[in-house]
Amino acid sequence: MKRLVPFPLLALALFAMWILLTGFSPGHVLLGALVALIVSRTMLSLRPEPPRVRIGWAMVRLAGLVLADIVRSNMAVAKIILSNPPDRHAGFIELPTDLRSPYALAVLALIITATPGSLWVQHDANRHVILIHVLDLVDETEWVTQIRERYERLLMEIFE
């Protein structure tokens, strides 16, 4: 089984995409399964590092947290754009991180950039420091502790 389908999640995602795009019929189920099997095998030549993902409640909690934060910061940034307060100042913050898994860092990059108001700029792999640009910077330490407590703990739980 492992040799036939080396990346079961990727194959399943490709199959789901095929069905969503073409519609459900026996012919397309067969064709989609074939495409998913063959195309997911092309990943073999890339030799990705096998991710260790722990599926559990932490994922659901992280998704809920991120959704709520996106809605909240959308409102905040919209208010900033419309009122344009003169005392607002943007700036860079440096976030020291304990995350080592590249998958966890990728997810954290997506989360930080997808919430309006904060932007992931750079990750220094030697010093383990992330450079983040914040639109409305009031207190640097508050941002650091917030990101560490809200996202990093859950990501550690899922990936490491």
Binding site: I70, I81, P116, H133
Partner: peptide, 25 residues
């Protein structure tokens, strides 16, 4: 509103945040 931010906000790094508005919510 996000696109307005592209015009109103000063500096490139501030404008990047404005694009995210339309791209998420």
């Amino acid at each position: 509103v996000g696109a307005l931010g592209l015009i109103r906000l000063p500096g490139f790094y501030a404008r990047v945040h404005a694009t995210t508005l339309g791209a998420t919510a």
